[in-house]
C-alpha cells in the first residue's frame, strides 16, 4: 500500500509539474488570469457596487451566489454533525 501510494503520488506530482511548463510566469501582470476578466472588477467596483474593497464587492455582489453556496456548505456540515453525533437521551 505504501509503495503503491508513493507511485501514485509521484505520477500525479510529475503530471502537475509537467503542466506548469506552459504556465505564465509567477507575478506577471499581463498573464491571462490577471488581464482577461479581472480588470473589470477593479475598474468598475466603485461605479457598480460603491465598495472600495474589491474582494468584498465580488464576494457579496458579482459572485454572491457562490457565497450562498458557501454558507450552504457550512449549514450542511453543521446539520450533518448533528445528524451523526446526536445520541438519544437515555431516560
Amino acid at each position: 500500500m505504501k509503495i503503491l501510494g508513493l507511485i501514485v503520488t509521484m505520477v500525479t506530482g510529475a503530471l502537475l509539474m509537467y503542466g506548469t511548463a506552459d504556465m505564465p510566469d509567477w507575478g506577471d501582470p499581463n498573464s491571462p488570469a490577471n488581464s482577461r476578466i479581472s480588470p473589470r472588477y477593479i475598474e468598475k467596483t466603485e461605479i457598480e457596487t460603491a465598495t472600495p474593497n474589491i474582494v468584498t464587492s465580488i464576494l457579496a455582489d458579482y459572485r454572491g451566489y457562490d457565497t450562498l453556496g458557501e454558507t450552504t456548505v457550512i449549514f450542511t456540515a453543521g446539520v450533518s454533525c448533528i445528524l451523526l453525533l446526536r445520541r438519544r437521551r437515555k431516560g
Binding site: 488570469a33 477593479i42 474582494v55 465580488i58 464576494l59 457562490d66 458557501e70 454558507t71 456548505v73
Partner: peptide
C-alpha cells in the same frame, strides 16, 4: 489595473476555505 492584485482568486479561495 497593474497596481492592484487580481481579486478573483481571493474570492474563490474564501469559498474553498469554508468548504
Amino acid at each position: 489595473i497593474a497596481q492592484y492584485l487580481n481579486p478573483l482568486p481571493h474570492v474563490l479561495m474564501l469559498t474553498a476555505i469554508v468548504v
